[in-house]
């Protein structure tokens, strides 16, 4: 039984890492090379099935789906990374101040976070995109804002737990300034929880981007986005059923990989799971 659990732990890490690193390599390659130009139409070749020339077939404009999936990793990673950067930066800042200072500052920060959390994420993103306009950066900003409360909560609970720890008292005694106590002493001690949360945020952001693009509000054509491709493929579900598999599979696989990775991180960093 123990061996099975041990193996399960490692499979999460190995498979998760393989998937994510695989997609990441595809993204790097896509900057320099794709089998076909992703935006050049070739109407005579439209809606071809998978073949040795077009691995995943072609879309309604005769563009190579495989090339567009490759290029789509750029969108996925760009949105994911930007979202995580925004969410983690502001989440840590707000959570750290709320948790460390406490009192009414804590109340105000956390009630504001609650308010933000009370909105269904996708509706809030829709609203923000409607205000700022669609596009990769705006989508990422909207998703980043949605990610802030989750990170802030985790950070806050960590800081509340640690602010009265004896090592923090000791640091106060020798005159370490509060900013340094927060970010040099406490933060490294709760970074593992934040890393896990950030990985999940990454996956959620990617899903949300696909959803927004599916609704036509995320990444704008002709830039390839998996969500957008999913939407476009819908119209040809009967005549070209293979079209939907590529973007759908790509989204599923990458999100799965990220979730597995975050599970593996949690298992490795949580001292309680180590026996």
């Amino acid at each position: 039984m123990k061996n099975v659990q041990k193996f399960a732990k490692h499979t999460n890490l190995i498979i998760g890492l393989l998937i994510v690193v695989g997609f990441f390599s595809v993204m790097i390659v896509s900057f320099f090379y794709t089998p076909f130009d992703v935006n050049v139409m070739n109407i005579p070749e439209k809606l071809r099935g998978p073949s040795s020339v077009y691995f995943f077939g072609t879309d309604e404009f005769g563009r190579d789906i495989f090339s567009r999936i490759m290029k789509g990793t750029q969108t996925a990673f760009a949105v994911g990374i930007l979202t995580v950067v925004i969410g983690v930066t502001f989440g840590i800042l707000i959570g750290a101040i709320a948790g460390y200072v406490g009192g009414w500052i804590d109340e105000i920060c956390m009630r504001f976070m609650d308010a933000l959390m009370a909105f269904p994420g996708i509706i809030l993103a829709l609203m923000l995109v409607a205000i700022f306009g669609p596009g990769i950066v705006n989508t990422a900003i909207a998703l980043g804002i949605i990610a802030i409360p989750g990170i802030a909560r985790i950070t806050r609970s960590g800081f509340v737990q640690h602010r009265d720890a004896e090592y923090v008292l000791a640091a106060k005694l020798i005159g370490v300034n509060p900013f340094k106590i927060m970010f040099r002493h406490i933060l490294p001690n709760i970074s593992s929880q934040i890393i896990v949360a950030a990985t999940v945020t990454f996956a959620t952001a990617m899903l949300a981007e696909a959803a927004l693009s599916y609704l036509g509000l995320g990444v704008q054509p002709p830039n390839p986005s998996w969500g957008r491709m999913l939407k476009d493929s819908q119209a040809y579900l009967m005549s070209a059923p293979w079209y939907i598999y590529a973007p759908g599979g790509a989204i599923t696989l990458l999100v799965l990989g990220l979730y597995m990775l975050s599970n593996a991180f949690r298992d490795f960093m949580d001292p309680r799971s180590k026996s």
């Binding site: 720890a165 004896e166 090592y167 008292l169 640091a171 005694l173 020798i174």
Partner: peptide, 15 residues
């Protein structure tokens, strides 16, 4: 003045 704390596992920063 300085202080020596009770729990040497909690009073020193493990990082």
């Amino acid at each position: 003045m300085q202080m020596i704390f009770q729990d040497p596992f909690a009073s020193l920063n493990p990082r």
